[in-house]
Design a protein around this nucleic acid. Sequence first.
DNA 1: ATTGTTTTTGCAACCCGTTGCAAAACATCG
DNA 2: CGATGTTTTGCAACGGGTTGCAAAAACAAT
Lengths: 184, 184
Amino acid sequence: MSLPHALLTALIERPHSSGLELARRFDKSIGHFWQASHQQIYRELGRLEADGLIASEAEAEARGRKRNYHVLPAGEQALRDWLGEADASTPLRDTLMVKLRADAVLGPERSDTPALIAAIEDRLTQHRDKLAQYESFAVRDMAHPDPDRAVRIRQLILQAGLRHESGWVETLEQALERLKVQNS
Amino acid sequence: MSLPHALLTALIERPHSSGLELARRFDKSIGHFWQASHQQIYRELGRLEADGLIASEAEAEARGRKRNYHVLPAGEQALRDWLGEADASTPLRDTLMVKLRADAVLGPERSDTPALIAAIEDRLTQHRDKLAQYESFAVRDMAHPDPDRAVRIRQLILQAGLRHESGWVETLEQALERLKVQNS
DNA sequence: ATTGTTTTTGCAACCCGTTGCAAAACATCG
DNA sequence: CGATGTTTTGCAACGGGTTGCAAAAACAAT
């Protein structure tokens, strides 16, 4: 349940953003570790406003029905309170692990291993792409001469992403290796 | 959407299991990478039976209204078909990353960093515990003399879990390190 | 015998994420 | 001007995951 807090964060970072602007920025920054569709974002902005955590004004001289939002003091307070709440660790939850287990249980004869290998290779390229993307971010971000606190935190988040993706690449490469040995 | 397939897998591995038995086994094996509550499991067993992928018989001489399920040929086929389907990579999705970003955006004065540090330390112990648990599994599992295909796959899954948890431990330790340096 | 406890199953409601679609306001171009 | 497209907002419906609660059936206790 972090979408509201992610939105508050994005709105403090750049006040007077509209729903669509937030959706676009989600895709490029926060979205790397917390995804949200524009429908979700509109719904949540409505709730945050109803709860008195943000406020908005309609912008004239704009297309559609553009509304610009900003965070109220109560919203900032809510965000600060939330920082201290403990949350349960995200458990590993991945369909590929289920597939591997299914393959093991079905056994080499009854399972369709070539198809599984194709599925794994597909996932592998996805993670390699993401990894390459993060690495290109890293070239920009890590070369900071005298990073302040905010920059150091961004670097930290990026490294978490790098570790995550390279971990998957490693796991999947190992899986392919082992599945292709077809004895017993 | 892997719960039905996880259940098929568990039922092929050990046929004539009841809903509760499956729920208990989920907690101990498949649950490490695909969690499900007993309510979910009962609901899904009902659907699988309605779809003709599994069948069940009521067991007399048992408490409650125990039913034992087994997989039908159509169920095994559905599982095999599913193995080849490509699935999208699980994107990183974690509240702590959101919190770190929120802290960075609020800045060292406005944010409540000590509370955040406490939250991170809490998470850190969770991941350390999980890691220790996996390591104890590894002692049993990796010491296999001549592992067959099924065992090799189990080892693979376990290593993925180990990588996942130790990755988080590393990330969180680094986060604490950086957050405790309070310049600028 | 009745009262409670345990096992097993399951319903109902809610929240979040997803998908499909549409309305409002403006822009553009023939 | 009218038709068509674009931007921005948003609704409706569905499905999975979560929580709370309860019914059915056997067993235990006093």
